[in-house]
Design a protein around this nucleic acid. Sequence first.
DNA 1: GCTTGACTTAAAGGGCACTTGAGATCCTAC
DNA 2: GTAGGATCTCAAGTGCCCTTTAAGTCAAGC
Lengths: 166, 166
Amino acid sequence: MNAPHEPDELLTIGEMSRRTGVAASALRYYEDIGLIATVRTSGNQRRYARHMLRRVSLISVAKRLAMPLSDVHDAFGEVPMDRTPSHGDWQKASRRWKRQLEDRRRGIERLEHELTGCIGCGCLSLKACALLNPDDALAATGAGARRLEDIAGSDSGREGSARDEL
Amino acid sequence: MNAPHEPDELLTIGEMSRRTGVAASALRYYEDIGLIATVRTSGNQRRYARHMLRRVSLISVAKRLAMPLSDVHDAFGEVPMDRTPSHGDWQKASRRWKRQLEDRRRGIERLEHELTGCIGCGCLSLKACALLNPDDALAATGAGARRLEDIAGSDSGREGSARDEL
DNA sequence: GCTTGACTTAAAGGGCACTTGAGATCCTAC
DNA sequence: GTAGGATCTCAAGTGCCCTTTAAGTCAAGC
């Protein structure tokens, strides 16, 4: 006895909060927007299936990566909420998450590479930098930069001056 | 003639907006919070020094990486706004930016690595994943996950069940 | 001189991701 | 059976990052 949890035991919102580190208010919010699901007791209290722990943990991870919750929703894809997801369900989701991460990493790597070049030349030049060509996945953030190549464009006529744009 | 811009020519807010892709309202906001600076004409209109193009572009980049503007402020550090920054000014800033990017990339790489393992085992397991140990730089996002290791902890007593937590 | 478009400010509004508060209800322990 | 903490709903508030609106000013072309 005192077995901590039966495999099919449901968790209260308080347990869920303590075990994931996510505030109860946030859990309610996630439910409101359809990221997680609950069942209710006869007294209308939320109970969480154990597989929701994984969903909530992944939401936390996404937060650390500054992913908008809409992307998180997409990343979950068809992972079911009404039953314990199967091996294959999570496997597909893992791949989706991995692609998301890869996209983000590649965007960062490109910037790192460019900045390395900029440190090399010492000017943090905006002419050559890929910083100016935000055609990568991270641009999905919204009203991000676009048409930055205008800078390079209008400068193309006066490349003689090394201090240009400084 | 028709030389597009003298090196010391100042830009209007409209030019700045067109050339950086950042809305004029956003440029005013960035000025309000001290991320950029302007000089004023006798008629009180904003005029932007050309080196502000670089600052604004970097702000856009940061947005694509979902960096809060406060971090952007830190990343600029001592790059001066009242004069054209020197070679060394930008060089120091470049290194600061690079460190920020490296931190973010490493966080993502760790998650990618873990997810790769999860795809391998097929379970997206929350027991072993570093997803549960968010002690990296990205946790700075704020109320992110903490104490996730509770999950692993309370499960440690019943490792026999492969379907645990699913 | 006048029109037109770009610009000014201040204040309000909006989306996201929550938190806080009030007041009611549920559940567990004694 | 009742005290206490946990939970419920709903509304409003918060912080960030802007955009929109209103009402007025500036600058350039005709």
